[in-house]
Amino acid sequence: MRVQVPFLRVGSIEVPPPAYQSEGAVGLDLCAAVAEAVTLDPGERKLIPTGYAVALPDGHEGQVRPRSGLALRHGVTVLNTPGTIDPDYRGEIKVVLINLGAAPFTVRRGDRIAQLVICPVALADVVLVDELTPTARGAGGYGSTGVRKEP
């Protein structure tokens, strides 16, 4: 699938384009396009630009997801995970990072901060009904399928 990805010239901030880091990777790494280093204190969140937009084909979405290494080593993650990029959006991809770690974390230009996974989606034809078709589970919610029943 071809996906158009233009660089949005933000002054002289140039960063690598979204890219797969290995042959089997499914997430395109997104880099920070910040003019100056940005520090996130513990508990702080900030919107970090990537410098790129994307033109996704109809029937697909972009999911912005955290990078596992940042989460494990620093407690830094994407706040609205997964963030959704609709196929009709043409603005810059920006990532809401939050520092859930115990120490300040600094984001520098070119740092890999998130990943973009492109997925097919099905659009629903919403039909209003008086009641739903019954199932064995019914309205059983949180934890209802893992409840151990005594003999």
Results as ranks from 00 to 15, higher is better:
Thr50Phe: 11
Asp58His: 14
Pro104Arg: 08
Gly51Pro: 10
Glu14Met: 11
Gly75Tyr: 02
Leu40Arg: 09
Ala37Val: 08
Val34Cys: 01
Pro6Leu: 11
Ile48Arg: 04
Gly43Ser: 10
Leu79Phe: 09
Asp88Arg: 14
Ile48Gln: 04
Arg45Tyr: 11
Pro87Arg: 13
Tyr20Thr: 13
Phe105Asn: 02
Leu40His: 08
Thr84Trp: 00
Leu70Thr: 05
Thr39Gly: 05
Pro16Ile: 12
Pro42Asp: 08
Leu28Ser: 01
Pro18Gly: 12
Arg90Asp: 13
His60Phe: 14
Gly75Gln: 03
Thr39Tyr: 11
Glu36Trp: 01
Pro42Trp: 03
Leu28Pro: 01
Glu92Ser: 02
Asn99Tyr: 11
Asp29His: 13
Gly62Asp: 10
Ile98Ser: 00
Ser12Asp: 15
Leu30Cys: 08
Gly69Tyr: 09
Ala25Cys: 01
Asn80Leu: 07
Asn99Glu: 07
Leu28Asp: 03
Leu70His: 07
Ser68Trp: 05
Ala33Met: 06
Cys31Gln: 14
Leu72Gln: 12
Pro42Ile: 07
Ile98Lys: 01
Lys46Asp: 04
Thr84Cys: 05
Ile93Leu: 13
Tyr20His: 15
Ile85Cys: 02
Gly91Ser: 09
Leu56Cys: 04
Ala35Asn: 10
Thr106Lys: 03
Lys94Thr: 12
Asp58Gln: 14
